[in-house]
């Protein structure tokens, strides 16, 4: 029967240096595992074809003053509203201090095109689509938009005035490519 010393030789020498190799190997395995996780997480981000749909052209020539349309950008609803002078005046009359999310109407529209209010139709509370873009829908207490889910009221500059929503309706990036065409995105 073999003795332990025959089978197991030279245990003591160089233990420290050897520990380093073990730690290095395990560390490399750890780094590798993290590196593999990155693409597995990243794959859930919007894919290239989804990102490519991020511009939308809208023809606004048919929208009469006082009217609004609902269109879509990145599959989200977008409200395009042709404000009348009274609505612009109402929005301008509100002191910024009274606003939950202080912004002037000029900040929310393009210079020279102040009558065009373009916002996402996504309530900043929990993402419902507010009413008020279509004919006959409730526009809430402030004549803008009204979200029926939890009762958020937006004014004629689509700013939050009452209800649980924390922010104004988001103005997406857009530009006028001509007098009648708006490119969003």
């Amino acid at each position: 029967m073999a003795s332990e010393s025959e089978l197991n030789a030279g245990i003591e020498d160089g233990v420290r240096r050897r520990d380093f190799i073990n730690i290095a190997a395990v560390s490399f395995a750890g780094v590798g595992a993290v590196a593999v996780v990155l693409p597995l997480v990243n794959q859930m981000n919007p894919s290239a074809d989804v990102l490519a749909l991020s511009t939308t052209e809208i023809d606004i020539s048919a929208i009469q003053p006082g009217q609004a349309i609902k269109t879509s950008w990145r599959k989200q609803p977008v409200f395009v509203r042709n404000l009348v002078a009274k609505e612009i005046a109402e929005a301008k009359a509100v002191p910024l201090g009274d606003l939950r999310d202080p912004e002037t109407i000029d900040q929310r529209t393009k210079a020279g095109k102040e009558n065009w209010l373009i916002t996402l139709g996504v309530c900043t509370h929990l993402g419902c689509v507010p009413l008020g873009a279509a004919e006959g829908e409730s526009r809430g207490d402030f004549g803008g938009y009204f979200c029926p889910c939890h009762g958020s009221h937006y004014d004629t500059a689509a700013r939050i005035r009452k209800g649980p929503a924390p922010k104004n309706l988001v103005v997406p990036p857009y530009e006028f490519t001509s007098d009648t065409v708006v490119t969003i995105g």
């Binding site: 025959e6 030789a9 050897r18 190799i21 073990n22 190997a25 395990v26 490399f28 590798g32």
Partner: peptide, 18 residues
């Protein structure tokens, strides 16, 4: 590099075992 390290680590751990 990982495989080389893993090999060294394997030899190192087995150094005292026939």
């Amino acid at each position: 590099i990982f495989t080389v390290l893993a090999y060294l680590s394997y030899r190192n751990i087995w150094a005292d075992k026939k």
